[in-house]
Computed example of a mutant assay.
Amino acid sequence: MSRTRRTDEGHGRVGSVLSGIAVALGCVLFLGGFVWGAIVYQPYTVPTDSMTPTIGAGDRVLAQRIDGSEVKRGDVVVFQTNSWGDLPLVKRVVGVGGDEIACCTDGKLTVNGKQIDEPYLPAGKNASLTGIKSTTVPEGRLFLLGDERNGSLDSTVHLGDSEHGSVERGAVQARVDAVAWPMDGMLAKPTGFEALPGGISRPGPLNLILTTVVAGAVLVLAGAAYGPIAKRARRPRAGAPEPVRA
């Protein structure tokens, strides 16, 4: 057997082992990413257009399962409470327990006297459409508004109740990270609330999960493709001289 042939076979065995490892690792990453995503995230279909243009009626969103105690101002949350109807709703948190909410100063929502920039509101409209009188959010509760402030069934509709239109933190089921369909991607950061005490929430691990799934798929495809490519590369070309045997 020629030295060249022995070298080629050695390289082939190493390549086969490496391709097998790539496929195995890829399967772990690909399936693990899906399992991770299923544990951390829950898909929801948004029933109304109260969150337009951020989220439209019928859009499918991915929401990270969290405890209500983790919610911060600016978060878009999925919640359910009997007083608002017996179905999951999606709204934006604009105030937490102890906050004084009012509208409007220069057409802007104010939280504890600070004007909040809300670039996610519909073009040509602003927070003045809510007409919120000054109210204090009870401790342990959240004040929620839709991004479409004109006619949204949100905390402003319930201002007259004993809890000043707020919802208990325990009613929150998840925090929306992204719009999956149509594929609008991750929600923009609510930077208008960033300077308030407690800041804003950091995005969940959705991007890392997607990267894990894609990396797994690439490894599986690359490992599976090695065999046919290597076999084709070792095949003698037409007209090529036969290797010299020892």
Rank of each mutant, 00 (worst) to 15 (best):
L187F: 06
S69L: 03
M51Y: 01
A178F: 01
R13D: 07
L29R: 01
H158Y: 15
V77W: 00
P182E: 09
S128E: 15
A233S: 12
T156G: 09
S16A: 15
S155M: 04
V176R: 00
P53K: 11
Y41Q: 02
D117N: 11
V14R: 13
D106V: 08
A222K: 03
G26I: 04
R141H: 15
E100T: 15
R235C: 05
E194G: 01
G32W: 03
P203V: 05
K189H: 04
R6W: 13
Q115N: 13
L31T: 13
E168K: 09
L144I: 10
R60A: 10
A222G: 08
L153R: 10
G107C: 11
V61P: 05
A230F: 09
A171Y: 01
I209W: 00
R60M: 12
S83Q: 14
V90E: 02
G198W: 07
V76A: 03
E194I: 02
E168Y: 03
Y44A: 01
K133P: 10
G97K: 03
G12W: 04
S83R: 13
P203T: 07
T54C: 09
E168C: 02
Y44F: 15
L29V: 05
L159D: 04
G20V: 12
F79Q: 00
D177Y: 06
I39G: 05
V220M: 12
G198Q: 07
Q80F: 07
S83M: 11
S201M: 07
R235G: 04
P241G: 14
